[in-house]
Design a protein around this nucleic acid. Structure first.
Length: 354
DNA sequence: CATCCGTGGCC
DNA sequence: TGGCCAAGGAT
């Protein structure tokens, strides 16, 4: 390996510029012999799937405080884990997080496997995450390929083929750069570079440690790469949410099905947007709160009408049940509907009517 | 290989 | 404002 190799320049850059992250063993501590906790690496990598560092930080601290090791997490109640994940999105990750913790705790004695194949056999761990845990937590020379690595490779080698077709070529190029020494630091270095220097828009080529060999920059097309096949436009769906508050302060809520949109999460009874069309959950004096909720999912826009009502004790809903609400347990769409309803419920406070 | 699955920030 | 983007996986 020549001293001017991509990996050596990236590691030298990383040793100085590594971001300080709650789940990371920085380069100084790493060279002093400290190693990352596989549990923490796994937790962070699951949270970081399609999600930014800024969004993950708070959740990572909360989860590792509540459940410091994989045995503790494996013993947690499903509703507690789903509630803590609320707001982070892609809720299948939370369901698989629990499944995985229970497998590792029950069948692996609490020790995560170190091989890529062993890791990838676990729920919620795919090719990227398996390579990341193997490299970062176990110092194995696995090649990590995420969106950052794809972008860095596409630019450095001026790959013009659009994604996702270019995926294999980019993976091969990344594999050829992966060093035998410090592969975990290297993996984090490429991803840090992609997140801070080789960014999707306005890359900071002037301070990039790879600029002198970057073909994309030499050809003046770095910022245009990687090319991507155009995406389909998002359709707009419409639906209705029903928010009922009982006189004692309990709310009519339902547990959503374990699969599909917001699967496994807490929600208001709704209709018309997620494949269900059951109508109102109970007969009542439903009032439009006057504020339409808008929300965008991965593949469609949603405009949600919010209907609200106050009902007496003894009300008997056809679906869902009345219970105490912790608003933080709601996924963002349901939280928006709750917020939109507050004007209605503020003016219908029993003690303001008398 | 295509589709489904959240959310917040950015320009 | 709306489309794009982020440390992807499951089916």
């Amino acid at each position: 390996m020549c001293e001017d190799a991509v990996s050596q320049r990236l590691l030298a850059w990383y040793d100085i510029n590594a971001r300080k992250l709650a789940w990371r063993v920085g380069p100084d501590a790493w060279r002093a012999g400290q190693r990352a906790d596989p549990y923490a690496v796994w937790m962070s990598e699951i949270m970081l799937q399609q999600t930014t560092v800024a969004a993950v930080d708070k959740y990572f601290r909360r989860f590792t405080t509540l459940w410091p090791d994989v045995h503790a997490l494996a013993s947690a109640k499903d509703a507690d884990v789903m509630g803590e994940w609320a707001g982070l999105g892609y809720y299948a990750r939370a369901r698989n997080l629990l499944k995985c913790a229970r497998v590792v705790s029950g069948e692996w004695g609490g020790v995560f496997p170190g091989t890529r194949a062993g890791l990838q056999a676990l729920p919620g761990i795919g090719p990227y995450t398996a390579a990341a845990i193997s490299a970062i937590a176990y110092d194995r020379p696995e090649t990590v390929v995420d969106g950052n690595v794809e972008r860095v490779m596409a630019r450095h080698f001026a790959v013009q083929t659009p994604l996702p077709k270019a995926k294999k070529d980019l993976t091969d190029l990344a594999g050829a750069e992966t060093p035998e020494h410090r592969p975990g630091c290297y993996a984090q270095a490429v991803m840090d570079l992609g997140a801070t220097i080789c960014t999707p828009r306005n890359p900071a080529c002037g301070i990039c440690p790879l600029s002198k060999t970057c073909l994309g920059r030499a050809r003046g097309i770095a910022a245009e790469l990687p090319r991507k096949t155009p995406k389909k436009p998002k359709p707009t769906r419409r639906g209705i949410a029903y928010l009922a508050r009982r006189d004692d302060g309990a709310w009519l809520l339902e547990d959503r099905p374990a699969r599909g949109l917001l699967g496994g999460m807490l929600g208001w009874p709704t209709e018309g947007w997620d494949g269900t069309d059951d109508g109102a959950p109970m007969p009542a004096n439903w009032q439009d709160v006057g504020v339409e909720v808008t929300h965008t999912f991965t593949h469609f826009h949603l405009r949600l009408q919010v209907l609200a009502t106050q009902v007496p004790q003894g009300a008997n809903p056809a679906r869902g049940n009345f219970r105490a609400l912790r608003p933080a347990d709601l996924p963002t769409l349901m939280r928006k509907a709750f917020d939109a309803s507050q004007r209605y419920f503020d003016q219908s406070e029993p003690d303001t009517l008398g």
